[in-house]
């Protein structure tokens, strides 16, 4: 399996080459085009209950689509829904990532997707909800963001502060605490930041350069109000 990002930038597409018999799972609706040798199946990753919990708890799609090169080698073109960059990671069986609910685009067959419950404070204040996706296993993992993806590399003990709505994915060797953006409650919210996550290395944190929630609020003002 080989993958390549086409048109890197705001409107990228991922080309994945599959050998005969190989398959990848992708977010439902992510497939743009594919070779005629590829079969598209919709699959409830992790069984019915797993799919159900993922759908209800994280708001992720109930079905993932599985693209299988069952009738010979072929290629698949995948694209996310929102404009923004795509990053391809290579999971090695030891590295694990937590991914916010809209961040998953596609993963190789060896990638295991779980929904995991967060602690009360992280769930309430982190802006990611109580359940997020945990990616483990081996193989290619494609993540997408809203805006550009920026990688923050943290050495052991190194800290970095991220606005919670800009998070895309972070390795499980990092830890983070939720805190107010400034020392006072009022200033925290009037500064426009509210809560932030203080990450502590070692590990990698992927952030997106745009905030989907703020963008939604900005767009809303231009939508005519229906009677």
């Amino acid at each position: 399996m080989k993958s390549e990002i086409l048109y890197p930038g705001a409107f990228p597409m991922v080309r994945v080459e599959l050998a005969e018999g190989e398959h990848i799972k992708a977010e439902s609706g992510a497939m743009v085009a594919c070779s005629p040798t590829i079969d598209i199946e919709s699959k409830m990753e992790g069984g019915f209950l797993g799919a159900l919990s993922r759908k209800f708890l994280t708001g992720e799609k109930f079905f993932f689509q599985t693209l299988r090169a069952s009738r010979g080698a072929g290629e698949v073109l995948l694209a996310p829904t929102v404009p923004g960059e795509v990053v391809v990671l290579d999971l090695d069986g030891v590295n694990e990532y937590m991914v916010q609910k809209d961040g998953f685009l596609a993963g190789a067959e060896g990638v295991v997707i779980d929904s995991q419950m967060q602690s009360m404070s992280r769930g309430l204040l982190g802006g990611e909800g109580f359940f997020i996706l945990k990616m483990s296993g081996k193989g290619m993992l494609a993540l997408n963001s809203f805006g550009a993806i920026h990688k923050i590399e943290l050495k052991p003990g190194q800290e970095y502060i991220v606005d919670n709505s800009h998070l895309v994915a972070w390795s499980t060797t990092t830890t983070y605490n939720i805190e107010k953006a400034t020392s006072g409650w009022v200033a925290s919210f009037t500064s426009g930041e509210g809560f932030v996550c203080r990450f502590r290395g070692p590990g990698v944190v992927y952030i997106q350069s745009r905030n989907p929630g703020s963008f939604g609020a900005w767009v809303r003002q231009f939508i005519p109000v229906s009677e």
Binding site: N95, E153, S171, T173, P202, G203, V204
Partner: peptide, 12 residues
């Protein structure tokens, strides 16, 4: 396991 150090990548 993952090993972190100056000569290793940030993701270990």
């Amino acid at each position: 396991a993952l090993c972190f150090g100056d000569e290793f990548p940030a993701s270990g």
